[in-house]
């Protein structure tokens, strides 16, 4: 290894060290300061703010203020100079290609959430009955660890298209030609490219749903199931009338999580098609407005629409949390 590489690695280690321990050092320094500067009684009042302070600061600077600022910017033109009122929203909500974006997002929402949750539930119930449960689970769950970009590369390979006379290197087209069909341009054909992208997300998310739902299924008390069996319920009836209602809270949590994730889906579309050929979704469209079209007003307006879409989930979360606190 040449000295250049060594110094690179050294620099990297230094950066990791500084970045990681800097923050802990800050806390210790502040704490010592407070212990020295304040009498016992006042310390109790000051210390909490030292401890929550940095979190509060980061949340405010990186999430709260920018969110408000984005709402504000969405009322301005491309470079945020002239006030345009709701024009950006009107454009976004009427222009044909942004409408396609919304249609696509809806498609993603319904298909990814529906299929991942349903499939995850089926797998969760089935997998409970085999001895190699852990191995099978790990395999299905593994895509969770893969980045959207990595997943996109994996699936580009699956969707790879070669002209009919060449040997196919993508699994799907190999199967298609093997069955005597013409090879299909999975990512190019506007009738199917959205579904091809959605399949990637389903592949990534099913493991997540399965793991959560499986732990919920296992959480159904054995004596309840036994009681149902003694009462004469068949396994199918038990599934629909005992298990599903009992794990409904988890199903809801999993669904909302997937919904929020799908609403923000960006990487897959951005890497696979760049949002072209009618595959744009809200989040990728926003990035394109920002970087390709340099229109910050429209970009912000799209972001705000995204925020509005997740507000119901936010309210539900807060409500659930409050309920939890009451039950404590």
């Amino acid at each position: 290894m040449d000295s250049n590489n060594v110094s690179l690695i050294f620099k990297a280690l230094l950066a990791i060290f500084l970045g990681s321990f800097g923050v802990i050092g800050v806390f210790y320094a502040l704490n010592i300061l407070v212990e020295k500067a304040f009498p016992e009684r006042a310390r109790i009042k000051v210390l909490p703010w030292i401890y929550v302070g940095p979190a509060l600061l980061l949340l405010t600077v990186y999430l709260i203020i920018p969110t408000l600022r984005t709402v504000y910017l969405s009322l301005f033109g491309p470079s945020s100079n002239e006030f345009v009122g709701l024009k950006n929203y009107i454009f976004v909500l009427t222009a044909p290609d942004t409408l396609t974006t919304f249609r696509n997002n809806l498609l993603w929402l319904v298909l990814v959430t529906g299929i991942s949750v349903f499939l995850g539930l089926i797998i969760a119930v089935l997998i409970d009955r085999v001895k190699y449960e852990q191995v099978a689970k790990s395999l299905i769950f593994l895509p969770m660890a893969i980045s959207f970009v990595g997943a996109s590369v994996i699936w580009r390979f699956i969707y790879a298209y070669r002209p009919a006379d060449a040997e196919q290197i993508g699994v799907l087209n190999a199967i298609a030609t093997g069955l005597g069909f013409e090879p299909i341009g999975w990512l190019v054909n506007p009738a199917i490219n959205n579904f091809a992208l959605i399949a990637i997300m389903i592949w990534l998310q099913t493991g997540f749903c399965m793991v959560l739902l499986s732990s919920a299924v296992k959480g159904v008390p054995a004596d309840v199931l036994e009681a149902a069996r003694v009462d004469g319920a068949s396994e199918v009836q038990i599934f629909w009338r005992i298990i599903i209602p009992m794990i409904m809270p988890t199903i809801l949590v999993v669904s909302t999580t997937v919904i929020v994730l799908v609403l923000k889906v960006f990487d897959i579309v951005f890497v696979m098609t760049g949002g072209n050929l009618g595959t744009d979704v809200i989040a990728s469209r926003m990035i394109r407005e920002m970087f390709n079209f340099r229109n910050y007003g429209r970009g912000s307006a799209i972001a705000v629409i995204l925020l509005i879409a997740v507000i119901p989930v936010m309210v539900a979360n807060i409500r659930r949390f409050r309920q939890q606190e009451l039950n404590r």
């Binding site: 009042k45 909490p48 703010w49 929550v52 509060l56 949340l59 990186y62 999430l63 709260i64 203020i65 920018p66 969110t67 600022r69 984005t70 910017l73 929020v260 609403l263 923000k264 960006f266 989040a283 926003m286 920002m290 910050y296 970009g299 912000s300 799209i302 972001a303 705000v304 995204l306 925020l307 997740v310 989930v313 936010m314 979360n317 807060i318 949390f321 409050r322």
Partner: peptide, 26 residues
């Protein structure tokens, strides 16, 4: 300390704020 419940509720709310909201200003 005063406001701790409020701070936590705000945090719960921020859980789902799309980070896209923050990109341009930051």
């Amino acid at each position: 300390f005063p406001g701790r419940q409020a701070i936590f509720i705000v945090t719960v709310g921020l859980l789902v704020v799309p980070l896209q909201m923050t990109l341009i200003p930051i």
